[in-house]
Amino acid sequence: MPIKLEMLRTFSVVATQGTLAGAAAVLGRSPSAVSMMLAQLEDDIGAPLFETDRKSRLTPLGQLVLEESQRATDVFDRSVAAIRRHAMSAGGIVRIAAVPSATVALLPDVIEAFRKAHPDVRIEISDVDSAAVRARIQRDAADIGIVSAQPRDTPEGTRIRSDDLGIVCVEGGAIHLAHMNTQGMSGWDLLKREPLISNPLCELVDDPLVAEMRIASTLEARNTTAILSFVKRGFGASILPFDAVRNQPDGVEFFVPAHSTSQRELRKIRQDNGRMRGPVAAFWDLLKD
């Protein structure tokens, strides 16, 4: 008998629950039915998946099968969810994975323009960092990605816009006061006056001091809202692009170091072999400088 997805799902639940009774309750089946399906799976594989009949400990092969079972069921569940979302949306769907600053500063205008021509299309936005954006594009969990990159980096995707990276700090704090006293003529060395709240954008600053402080940092955040909240509470300062703090909250200051300017580019990416059609292609075309 060929291995079926339902066999893998049943095995995964049993392995997670540790007992037939617990798995039966989760699956809504009788323990005997669950046991029979496990036996069919083991017969087809030709080796035991559990060390004992109590199903509380996996064999090395069982551990491998568990990982593959979870991967297979996750892919299937995502596909089913995507199909259902498409069925619910009469005009189709566009899945966007974008860095937080793009979500705040770039996407609202694009979405407004897109909805005028495609009011029935469902738009899904994932607010994540650049590494997660790339991962979602690679595994086809997003149609379009927007990442942050340094202008000197190897070209990736298509450039949308660029802006300056700067220091964001609490109003009235040590960095803000030092910046005011130097009349704006200051560099990244001002960061030494407060703890650094690290985030992936720090990697885009070509300065050895920033690299050292990032390694030594004891607080890291990847969401722009969280970073600004931490800065406002006085936990330290951070590095963000101008677009991310265009409408910064009260009590927070932003400035670009005068002696060493670093820029961040926003680039749109997609799968190398991805063929965009309909709404996705229309949204892609609207993402421009």
Rank of each mutant, 00 (worst) to 15 (best):
A87M: 15
A90I: 10
A90P: 04
A90Q: 09
G91I: 11
G92Q: 10
G92P: 09
I93N: 09
V94A: 13
R95W: 05
I96T: 13
A97M: 12
A98D: 04
V99H: 03
V99M: 05
P100I: 05
S101P: 05
A102R: 00
V104C: 07
A105W: 00
A105L: 03
P108F: 02
P108E: 11
A113E: 10
F114E: 14
F114K: 07
K116E: 12
A117I: 02
D120F: 00
D120T: 14
D120H: 04
I125P: 02
S126M: 15
D127A: 01
D127S: 08
S130L: 04
A131C: 03
A132I: 10
V133P: 00
V133E: 05
V133K: 05
V133L: 00
A135S: 14
A135H: 09
R136N: 12
I137R: 14
D140G: 13
A142K: 09
I144S: 04
G145M: 13
I146A: 06
V147Q: 02
V147Y: 01
S148F: 01
S148I: 00
P151D: 08
P151Y: 03
P155Q: 13
P155S: 13
E156D: 14
R159W: 05
I160D: 02
I160L: 12
I160P: 01
S162A: 01
D163R: 04
D163C: 15
D164P: 05
